[in-house]
């Protein structure tokens, strides 16, 4: 903990000019405000639900959300389990990281695998990314929520990720069919959130709503939060598919005749199913290196996600169907 918890930290001696504004001196920094807001949201959500759960995707946003949850309820253990909706197609390093988190967790990490998708052998190559995502993630999530009768689920989505999310509520109501209806969303004023729901309905809660990608990285840096090593650059075997650099993470990735993976120094800005997640060429192998690269980069975070490329407005449609 380098700069927490006291709001005013003396400037390091080597700083001669400072951008720290006198106008906000003595007040909480923007990151401290975001942290406090997220904690507040989590405490409200837990207090106003009977069976809450935190959706855990193994990515950096989930890492931050888990860290904030530990802060929110400290010294008590987490008052809810984590749930990973597994597609069986994540990177191997993600699975290793998940096991580590489960071991160190003061609580339970549930894993759900859609038995129907498993039985049908759904994969992104034969069935396409849309069906793959729908069955493994959207359907899998519905199954898990219904099976455990969870009435409130935390998700790590941020409003800055995508245009359609700028208007998403912090507390987002879903029908018994897990559908999101833009007309039924509730106004959110001050710090007052309304988590009340009718039987069958559930609430998705997004504690990171007001965080940006830079905020997330900066917080990971400040708080020393562990993240999956895939975010750091190192030589990895990749092939090029539809303009994306796809990592050959295991032998399930079909190679064209004569196609051989190249060893390229790459890292990932977002993590998902490995055949659907594009890598970026990079040499950034430290946190500050990643942040530096992100700040100087010229393409947005979601560019590496195949799911958004389907068509404009696709994220919004997926949300209405129950995808996060």
């Amino acid at each position: 903990m380098r700069y927490w918890p006291q709001p005013v930290t003396p400037e390091p001696a080597h700083v001669t000019t400072t951008a720290a504004p006198a106008v906000d001196a003595g007040r909480l920094t923007h990151l401290q405000r975001l942290e406090a807001e997220s904690i507040h949201i989590m405490r409200e959500a837990v207090s106003e639900s009977e069976r809450p759960v935190m959706l855990y995707s193994i990515g950096k946003d989930s890492s931050v959300m888990l860290h904030l949850a530990r802060k929110a309820f400290y010294p008590a253990p987490l008052p809810f389990p984590l749930l990973h909706v597994d597609t069986t197609w994540k990177f191997r390093e993600m699975y290793a990281f998940r096991e580590r988190v489960a071991r160190e967790l003061d609580g339970e990490l549930l894993v759900h695998i859609n038995p129907d998708a498993q039985a049908r052998g759904i994969n992104p190559f034969d069935h396409g990314s849309a069906l793959h995502t729908d069955l493994w993630k959207t359907e899998g999530l519905k199954q898990a929520l219904e099976h455990h009768r969870f009435d409130l689920a935390f998700g790590g989505a941020r409003r800055d990720e995508e245009k359609s999310r700028a208007k998403e509520r912090v507390f987002s109501l879903r029908s018994a069919q897990h559908q999101w209806d833009p007309k039924r969303q509730r106004p959110e004023l001050w710090r007052l959130y309304n988590a009340r729901r009718s039987p069958g309905e559930s609430v998705r809660v997004f504690p990171l709503s007001n965080w940006t990608e830079l905020d997330v990285w900066q917080y990971i840096w400040l708080e020393d939060i562990p993240i999956v090593p895939l975010y750091f650059s190192k030589p990895r075997p990749v092939v090029e598919r539809d303009g994306l650099l796809i990592m050959v993470d295991d032998d399930r990735l079909p190679l064209a005749p004569g196609e051989t993976p190249r060893q390229v120094s790459v890292r990932f800005r977002t993590l998902g199913c490995y055949p659907l997640t594009g890598a970026v060429e990079s040499t950034a192998d430290t946190l500050t290196g990643i942040i530096q690269e992100m700040l100087l980069t010229t393409s947005s975070e979601r560019q590496g996600r195949a799911i958004d490329h389907d068509s404009s407005g696709s994220m919004e449609r997926k949300k209405q169907e129950g995808y996060f």
Binding site: P12, T18, P21, Q218, W221, T288, L295
Partner: peptide
């Protein structure tokens, strides 16, 4: 000097 940049960014108000 990314470290210096981060130090500054960290002290921003909201």
């Amino acid at each position: 000097d990314i470290d210096e940049y981060l130090h500054r960014h960290q002290h921003k108000g909201l």
